[in-house]
């Protein structure tokens, strides 16, 4: 299994092959090269998981988050209930800092994207966590996907900042520390993307960090609104 130009050709043809174009040379090389065969198998696995994700049922927490965002926008009104007064206090806080309507649409879109990436407290029993799968296999996330994910994260982060004061202090400290860690990881990975030698692994870590950050914010919002 010696490295040669055929491995580089494999990488160059990979995107076209994944778009559905016939690339017999790529397949022939994958049959001969262990590493490239693993890469290809992993990408196929991620794609298969991605297609399965669309079939997953949204969690109850998701609808609560969407509802909370709609309430925050004043699009729907909440009837006060005795058991949920703290939750309403959180929503009132959000009303004082209303998100733009366009932001809401983006947030809803974002949450839909996140359906495939289970939050820390949202169970998806059927398959291994896609986030873990992504973390554990060769990462393939198109630039467009990353751009959409970063928009999602910005919306979630804005909602988090609106509601963070309602988090229990020790939980808030945990979230803050973890966010700091992930932000540092994201920043370093972005810097490493300019480094040709480390681009592939940096890209893999970057995508995973984005997904983890989105999950973390989703989890924090669940608690910020429902504690």
């Amino acid at each position: 299994m010696l490295a040669d130009d055929s491995c580089l050709n494999f990488e160059m043809q990979l995107a076209d092959y994944l778009e559905g174009e016939p690339r017999p040379a790529l397949l022939a090389h994958a049959r001969q090269c262990d590493f490239c065969r693993c890469v290809l198998a992993d990408i196929e696995q991620v794609r298969a998981l991605g297609s399965e994700m669309l079939l997953e049922e949204p969690s109850a927490a998701l609808w609560k988050n969407i509802r909370a965002a709609l309430v925050a926008e004043g699009i729907i009104r909440v009837r006060p209930a005795s058991r949920g007064w703290r939750m309403l206090r959180g929503i009132r806080g959000a009303l004082w800092h209303p998100l733009p309507v366009t932001g809401l649409a983006a947030a809803v879109t974002a949450i839909i994207i996140l359906l495939g990436t289970p939050g820390y407290l949202v169970r998806h029993p059927a398959a291994p966590s896609p986030a873990i799968q992504r973390a554990s296999v060769y990462q393939y996330m198109a630039p467009g996907d990353i751009a959409q994910l970063t928009r999602t994260i910005r919306q979630l982060e804005r909602s988090y900042r609106v509601n963070e004061s309602y988090l229990e202090p020790s939980m808030k400290a945990t979230y803050e520390k973890s966010l700091e860690s992930l932000n540092s990881e994201i920043q370093e990975c972005q810097n490493s993307l300019n480094d040709e030698a480390n681009r592939s692994l940096a890209s893999q870590y970057l995508s995973t960090a984005y997904v983890q950050k989105a999950e973390l914010l989703q989890s924090a919002l669940e608690y910020g609104l429902h504690q």
């Binding site: 490295a3 040669d4 491995c7 030698a197 480390n198 692994l201």
Partner: peptide, 10 residues
């Protein structure tokens, strides 16, 4: 045997 990726990664 060294694969090209050995050189790609630190």
């Amino acid at each position: 045997n060294h694969h090209h990726s050995v050189f790609y990664y630190g």
